[in-house]
Amino acid sequence: MKKFIAVKNAKLRSEAGGGAIQELARAMLASGLVDRVLTFAKGLDEEDLLPAFIDKADDVGNMALNAYAPYSLSRFVRDYGEGKLAVIGRTCDIRALLELRKRNGLNEADLLTVGIACSETPDRQNCLRCEYRVPFMADLSCVLAEDGTLVEATGDKGAQALGTGSFEELSPSKEIFDAEAARQVALAEQAAAFELQHASPAERLAYWFGQFDKCIKCFGCRNSCPLCYCKDCVLEADRGLVRGGEIAPARLFHLTRLAHVADSCLNCGQCEAACPMGIPISKLYHMLNKELSAVFGFTPGINADLPPLFGFDEKEKSDDSTLFGGR
């Protein structure tokens, strides 16, 4: 059931989406439904965002919802996510949490997710390619509009959280729904139009190895990845072709990382944002992930399905494109 709501409190009303998200965070904290809220907060100016745990209901005014920040909230949940926690984030943050959950990286019972759709596309390659802007996998899926917020509770948990707040239910004009729908269609078309493959294998090889050779092995891609959850990382080990501690790394360094996360890459672009050498690494991950999605029928972060390498499908024995690869 979709609702179009805004907050009654005049002070918060001027915030994006009619202040509904701020009121939701305030109410969840005040009612004790959650102990902390993890979200983005205002830094020095409009463009400066910081990830923040908010634990006092009075502090919700610091929340910042409508700008982009190159952090993945799921990493903070993994490292500091104790107690009853609500996460208010972008769709890629919520999808990352879902994937971490499958890998036993999180305590599911104590986590409540509030996703906010990306209405505007940040000028980033991975965002332009993004096919999942509406967080339908979150407990509460929200779209910020001019004077109010479209909210949909996807289950009892979301409905309970929404029930703690004091909202004014607006009668949404048809234009708001239509405008939002049209925008989503336009963004989806833009994502679909993205050309993934380069021409010949030789050109691909020259391109990617040229990119890999720029690497200074800072581990920024690994450290910023919402899905890298191993405590002992294979990339630091001394393994024949990829020597531990060697700078610059062998070309297989990147292929090793690719093999580790490709089946679950969300195209969140954190690796690319972190890379000091400007390697378009999320493009490579996203390309491979799309190929693998076509083969295995698995899309990470949208439902509870397990990644392909978690199990064995009888069909794979006879499918040449997976195990025995066209031989």
Binding site: P201, A206, A259, L288, E291
Partner: peptide, 20 residues
């Protein structure tokens, strides 16, 4: 999956083979 990976960066997938 490894073969797909190699093909994506332009390495011949024929360099990997899996047999029981």
């Amino acid at each position: 999956m490894v073969r797909q990976l190699l093909d994506t960066v332009g390495i011949e997938p024929g360099r990997v083979r899996c047999e029981w």
